[in-house]
Amino acid sequence: MTDEVRLIPIRRIPEARPGDSVAELVLTGMAACGLTGEEGDVLVVTQKLVSKAEGRVVALAGIEPSPFAIAYGQRWERDPRQIELVLRESARIVRMDRGLIIAETRHGFVCANAGVDLSNVPAGYAALLPLDPDRSAAQIREELGERVGWTPAVIVSDTFGRAWRNGIVNVAIGVAGMRPLRDYRGQRDPFGNELRVTVIAIADELAAAAELVMGKTEGCPAVIVRGFRYEPGEGSARELLMPAERDLFR
């Protein structure tokens, strides 16, 4: 059982550029803040930091929108070039209405605009999701171990909306070094009732907690979560995705 959890923001991380090592950027920020890693830490890094370092930021000026993207953009006062990027990044369009596009990405995530985001990038640019967020998380963890002997569990987070609820929350789109789910099925609650369906999305909860100190305008792309007792293992964010055969809303 976890008694206390600390959320430690890493605020002085340099702006990422294509080809940068995310691990090195994180270590630079930690050194500037006087922080050191500890055994059992969880490192949560934003998708935007990873995407910038992996060259997944594109100039809208180089995007030629299709006639469909132009028509949809004009109808709803959206940039047709962004619409075109959303269509290119989508494996399946779930819903298009009132200028909103809910899409399934090639990773299997169902989210707004297929993860294409115009925030926290220079004007005229758009950030795309990492090609393989699990691999990105694993690489960050491996490099931290090689450089300073620190091997935290790593979560790559992004902000998703939620059906039937207002507001957005951070979720895990990449995981390394931990099991993303905690399965309580077969255990009993304090009243002796057997738990039959309770599986907690631990990685999502850690990502959401980290956002409390990241903020959206403070320029803090990484947080150390300290004190949480997670289950080590070779987890994947894909474990958090609802299988199609169990999805009641597909």
Rank of each mutant, 00 (worst) to 15 (best):
Glu143Asp: 14
Asp117Ala: 04
Ala137Arg: 03
Gly167Asn: 06
Gly149Ala: 09
Pro133Leu: 04
Gly177Ala: 11
Ala163Trp: 14
Arg162Val: 13
Ala112Tyr: 14
Gly149Met: 09
Ala112Leu: 15
Ala126Arg: 02
Gly177Asn: 08
Trp150His: 13
Asn166Lys: 14
Ala137Pro: 04
Asn193Pro: 01
Tyr125Gly: 02
Arg135Pro: 00
Gly145Lys: 08
Leu181Thr: 02
Arg165Asn: 09
Asp132Met: 04
Val175Arg: 01
Ala138Cys: 08
Glu143Lys: 12
Arg179Ser: 10
Ala114Gln: 11
Thr151Met: 15
Ile155Arg: 02
Ala123Gln: 14
Glu146Met: 11
Tyr125Gln: 15
Val197Trp: 09
Asn113Phe: 14
Val116Phe: 07
Gly192Thr: 01
Val121Asn: 09
Leu181Val: 04
Asn166Glu: 15
Arg135Trp: 07
Ser136Cys: 11
Arg188Leu: 00
Ser157Trp: 00
Tyr125Ala: 12
Arg147Ile: 15
Ala176Ile: 02
Ala126Ile: 06
Pro152Ile: 07
Arg165Asp: 07
Leu129Ser: 05
Val175Asn: 01
Asn193Ile: 01
Asn193Phe: 11
Leu131Asp: 15
Gly124Tyr: 09
Asn120Lys: 05
Arg147Cys: 12
Gln187Met: 13
Glu194His: 00
Ala127Pro: 00
Pro122Thr: 06
Tyr184His: 13
Pro190Tyr: 01
Ile173Val: 15
Asp189Trp: 04
Ile140Pro: 04
Gly192Gln: 04
Pro152Trp: 06
Phe160Tyr: 13
Gly161His: 10
Leu131Gln: 14
Leu118Cys: 09
Leu129Glu: 03
Pro122Trp: 07
Asp183Tyr: 01
Asp183Gly: 01
Arg185Pro: 00
Asp134Ile: 01
Ala163Val: 13
Leu118Gly: 15
Pro130Trp: 04
Gln139Ile: 05
Asn166Ala: 15
Gln187Cys: 06
Val175Phe: 03
Glu146Leu: 14
Arg141Asn: 05
Gly174Met: 02
Leu129Cys: 04
Ile140His: 05
Thr159Glu: 10
Arg162Trp: 10
Arg179Ile: 02
Val121Met: 11
Ser136Gly: 08
Ala163Lys: 15
Gln187Ile: 00
Asp134Lys: 00
